[in-house]
């Protein structure tokens, strides 16, 4: 692939889970060096989309090509090679509960980059933990950490190999405002210093505006809108406006809106049918 090819190239991706069409002909392209923020309501398939990008889920139909590897057709070796170049932060953190923070963050270095000395590994882990504002927690077990700390350890593990592409599933949920800003700064500096390509799923509109070169809104199984933060502000599409403004009424809540709540109220003066 040439440097100008998109790092992620998804076309017409469909995925049905539990009898429900979660992703419906979703198309998306992410350019090299770009940070794309993905926003959308809970349960609209943001995590499912990220899992397709690392090949944890396979598309029912459509194409999903990442760093030149087609995740639908690549064999184990191809997927393995791809994953060495990708960092992934799970929404839950997904730390290994049986080992301490040091071992968790060191795991990608130990198991996949043979020939690193123990001192080198420890140094890299310490540096990476410092990047996410965690110091002196190396010997703690995941169960002894707060939710936000676990998230940051997961983040450290995702970037410890200095990958070309990093996928973040809600890096700032569960963090206080200062923690959120510092993770946002980290994501921005990853981009300027290491020139990585990043996809960040978030619920936080302020974060999305701060870190995203572009922002994509997932709705009804596809990327409903994608554009720069300025374009997002400028659009007058009612669905986008509702999400960005956090309004309870609008196209996203049609049918489950206020009117229905009122109608179902046991007492009241709603007109009889």
């Amino acid at each position: 692939m040439t440097p100008t090819d998109p790092v992620i190239d998804i076309a017409e991706l469909c995925k049905t889970l539990g009898g429900r069409r979660v992703l419906n002909r979703l198309s998306l392209q992410v350019r090299r060096g770009e940070t794309l923020a993905i926003i959308g309501r809970s349960g609209t398939g943001k995590s499912v989309l990220l899992k397709h990008i690392v090949g944890l889920m396979k598309p029912d139909s459509g194409r999903c090509s990442v760093l030149g590897v087609d995740t639908a057709t690549a064999g184990d070796a191809g997927i393995g090679a791809l994953r060495r170049r990708v960092g992934y932060l799970f929404q839950s953190g997904a730390l290994l509960a049986a080992m301490d923070v040091l071992e968790n963050v060191a795991l990608p270095l130990r198991e996949c980059e043979s020939g690193l000395s123990e001192a080198r590994i420890r140094e890299t882990v310490r540096e990476t933990l410092a990047l996410v504002n965690l110091e002196g927690v190396e010997s703690r077990m995941p169960s002894e950490l707060s939710g936000g700390m676990r998230k940051r350890v997961g983040l450290a593990r995702a970037i410890v190999r200095r990958p070309e592409l990093v996928l973040y599933d809600e890096p700032t949920s569960g963090l206080d405002p200062i923690g959120t800003s510092s993770i946002d700064d980290l994501i921005r500096s990853m981009k300027s210093v290491l020139n990585v390509t990043q996809v960040v799923v978030t619920h936080d509109m302020a974060s999305a505006r701060r870190i995203g070169d572009r922002i994509g809104l997932i709705w009804e199984g596809r990327i409903y809108f994608v554009g720069t933060p300025a374009e997002l502000e400028a659009t007058d599409d009612p669905t986008v406006r509702q999400f960005v403004g956090g309004l309870t009424t609008g196209p996203m809540t049609e049918g489950i809106g206020e009117t229905q709540l009122l109608r179902n109220r046991p007492r009241g003066d709603a007109p009889a049918e």
Binding site: R83, F90, L95, L96
Partner: peptide, 22 residues
């Protein structure tokens, strides 16, 4: 099983660590 339902197995795979080997 606990590792599987808390996405730890997925995490191993994403780090290109083979859970069968590991």
């Amino acid at each position: 099983g606990t590792m599987a339902v808390s996405e730890e197995i997925d995490a191993l795979e994403v780090m290109s660590i083979n859970p069968v080997y590991y």
